[in-house]
């Protein structure tokens, strides 16, 4: 596949790509595979995503002084500090890291430099030449849309945290309840998952697989991996009942992945589809947020409307449930109804 003549213009069957990727990617070809996946993504794109502001060549961008220079420098020694390629102060690894981040911050002044980007760029640099790594960063940020989460307001991160807690409620309700009892919200453990694509805490072999899936499926992958990991460790987490020990399990036990767990996670991620839920929960977040900031009388009128529509939905669901209970498939819907009436 990688050696196809005129590769960037030839669409390859998605089934074939999925099958190939499920078998794993040889390390020496990984960078090339990521480039290939990005080309395939661009070939399939129906609506064009936000294009980069300009197409200034990498070498030109490097010549400009970044206003984020200082912020980037501070983080260089604090990114993969024990990895042989990055450990030497201003050695080749750190220098490339600096170059790519500096060039990116010039290209995209709205985002500039945000903590977390160092890790994402670091992973790219482990598999790609500097300029290719820059191009892939550009792809992740602009085409796959990761740049939203790094903007100064970080609103996208707030939305992600809300979406994750709603998904947890859908897939692992008991776990979600257990965490809520201890006041453990996703914002306590999940920001590094999203802002570094798991690179800051997880073994690099696993992170590479996460990046493979990210290039193939887009940013939804981070939700899927997170849900899968939390789900697989549900019993372990629920054995603990203090804030400290639970957070400790999530931060130190979850990343401690064996090969089997890793494969299991990758397989689960390939099977999940969260598109609809993620869209619904994003809208839900916006609505809740608008209500919170609306003037109070308007708010109560609005809440009244919401309440009525929920009641309506509730009774509709009740009817549906009754019909379905008759058909013997009631049990799992019950949870949904109690939720709406709560």
């Amino acid at each position: 596949m990688l050696a196809t003549p005129d590769r960037p213009k030839v669409k390859v069957d998605m089934e074939i790509i999925h099958a190939a990727l499920a078998q794993g990617v040889p390390k020496q070809h990984r960078g090339e595979v990521w480039k290939f996946l990005s080309e395939q993504h661009l070939l399939r794109q129906t609506v064009s995503s936000q294009p980069p502001p300009d197409n200034t060549a990498y070498k030109e961008l490097l010549k400009q002084v970044s206003s984020e220079q200082h912020a980037i420098l501070i983080d260089l020694g604090r990114t993969f500090p024990t990895h042989p390629y990055f450990e030497e102060s201003m050695g080749p690894g750190q220098l490339s890291l600096y170059n790519v981040l500096s060039a990116y911050s010039v290209l995209d002044p709205e985002v500039g430099y945000c903590q977390g980007l160092c890790f994402v760029t670091g992973v790219l640099l482990l598999h790609l030449e500097e300029e290719d790594a820059f191009n892939m960063l550009k792809f992740l940020m602009f085409v796959l849309g990761l740049r939203q989460q790094y903007k100064p307001s970080m609103t996208a991160v707030q939305i992600q945290m809300y979406q994750l807690s709603r998904l947890l409620h859908d897939y692992h309700k008991d776990l979600q309840c257990h965490l809520e009892q201890q006041d453990i919200a996703p914002s306590l453990y999940a920001p590094p998952w999203f802002l570094t694509n798991f690179a800051s805490q997880y073994p690099l072999g696993f992170v590479a697989r996460v990046f493979d899936m990210l290039f193939l499926q887009g940013p939804e992958v981070i939700f899927k991996v997170g849900l899968s990991l939390l789900g697989s460790h549900k019993l372990l987490i629920m054995q603990h009942d203090s804030l400290e020990s639970i957070v400790d399990v999530i931060k130190t036990e979850l990343p401690n992945l064996g090969l089997v767990q890793m494969e299991k996670t990758v397989n689960q991620v390939c099977e999940m589809d969260l598109t609809k839920q993620l869209q619904a929960y994003e809208v839900e977040y916006q609505v809740l947020n608008d209500e919170l900031h609306a003037p109070s009388d308007q708010r109560s009128a609005h809440l009244e409307k919401v309440y009525q529509s929920l009641q309506q939905q509730n009774s509709e669901l009740m009817e549906e449930l009754q019909v379905k209970t008759h058909r013997n498939s009631g049990a799992c819907k019950l949870a949904q109804v109690t939720f709406f009436s709560a």
């Binding site: 604090r78 990114t79 500090p81 903590q115 890790f119 914002s187 400290e244």
Partner: peptide
């Protein structure tokens, strides 16, 4: 010695 930069919040007691 070799610490990552903090992304979000960490905590200890």
């Amino acid at each position: 010695q070799d610490s990552n930069h903090t992304i979000g919040v960490e905590f200890g007691s």
